[in-house]
Computed example of a mutant assay.
Amino acid sequence: MSSYSSSTSTAEDMSDELETLGWYHSDLSRHAAEALLLSNGSDGSYLLRNSNEGPGCFALSVRAKDSVKHFHVMRKDSGYAFGFNEFASLQDFVNHFANQPLLGSDTGTLIVLKCPYPWRVEEPSIYESVRVHTAIQTGRTENDLVANAPSLGTKEGYLVKQGAIVKNWKQRWFTLNRYELKYFKDKMCEEPLRTLDLRACSAVQFDYSQDRVNCFCLVFPERTFYLCAKTGVEADEWIKILRWKLSQIRKGR
């Protein structure tokens, strides 16, 4: 009886210890982890979650470019086993990531653990019409997120865009997902006319140089894109969420 109480107490203590870890996502599923890291993370983002292999089993999920690798972590007595390494405490386990941030995947690729993916993500402060959420879609279980779930900050809508060569203005349908801003000829088109990678964007700001109101611009090395919204409020929404995206990109570098 006393032995059972002692082991239960130890497990509870270790569970409490894990709760202090900002990147421990507890019961997040494998598919949900992949969705979060692929949609919102960057190369080297990682998180720890419970494994479905049983008590004391965890998984370290790491984004490596356009895929997510999963590594087993075992809890042993008061320590943790990770690969061929064993750690006496959670602090030692965390220090391992800081001092030896390379992992060999099954293909022999070295993965750099760059940034922990927090279980609490700060959302941009924007208007209600901007959809800020993690989309829950049908996966293998009803609570799973599928890998193509949108990022936490998404937006779509019509904007008027200035042409590159002929400086005329045309209405286009824009979608923002992850770090990609795409524009289409209209809402019903499946293929975008162009995809802008926000990782190459240096600034987003209101623009007053055009003979139009509610304009803003996105500055890229090769070109500055001029866009106009129907209202000042809508232009402000786009600017806020695009600037938030840029801030997240810079944090990941």
Rank of each mutant, 00 (worst) to 15 (best):
D106K: 12
Y46D: 07
R250A: 12
Q100S: 13
L113Q: 04
S26H: 08
S61I: 05
S105P: 03
Y4N: 13
P118E: 04
S6P: 00
F87P: 03
Q137K: 12
E191Q: 10
A98Y: 01
I136F: 05
F71V: 07
E86G: 04
N177D: 13
W119A: 12
R30T: 10
T109M: 05
F216C: 06
L21S: 09
I241A: 07
A229D: 04
Y46I: 01
T224L: 09
L242K: 06
D77S: 13
K76A: 09
K161N: 06
L37T: 03
E12S: 11
Q205W: 01
C228V: 10
L110V: 08
I126E: 01
Q162I: 02
L218C: 07
L193D: 09
V68N: 00
M74V: 04
A81N: 08
I126V: 15
R199I: 11
R49Y: 02
N214D: 12
L28M: 12
L110W: 06
Y46A: 03
A88H: 11
T175E: 04
Q171L: 13
L48V: 14
E142V: 14
S15I: 10
F220C: 11
Q100P: 00
R49S: 03
L198K: 05
S2E: 08
R172Y: 02
N95V: 02
K114M: 08
A229F: 09
A35G: 11
I136D: 07
S5R: 11
F82M: 04
G108P: 06
Q171V: 14
E191D: 08
L145G: 06
G139A: 04
A32M: 05
S125R: 09
V213N: 07
L152K: 06
G54R: 10
D43M: 00
F93L: 14
N50M: 08
R63S: 02
W244T: 12
N85V: 07
K230Q: 11
Q137T: 03
R223L: 14
V94W: 02
L21Y: 04
E86H: 14
W169F: 11
E86F: 09
H70Y: 06
I165D: 11
S78T: 05
Q248K: 13
P55L: 04
L113K: 02
W173E: 03
K230A: 15
R243M: 13
S89E: 06
Y117R: 02
P124T: 10
K114P: 00
V233W: 02
N52G: 14
G163R: 13
E190C: 04
N148G: 05
L176I: 13
R75C: 07
S202R: 10
E237L: 09
F225D: 13
P150V: 03
D106Q: 13
S105I: 00
G83R: 04
R223D: 07
V94C: 13
C201A: 08
L176R: 11
I165L: 15
K114F: 03
S5D: 09
G54Q: 02
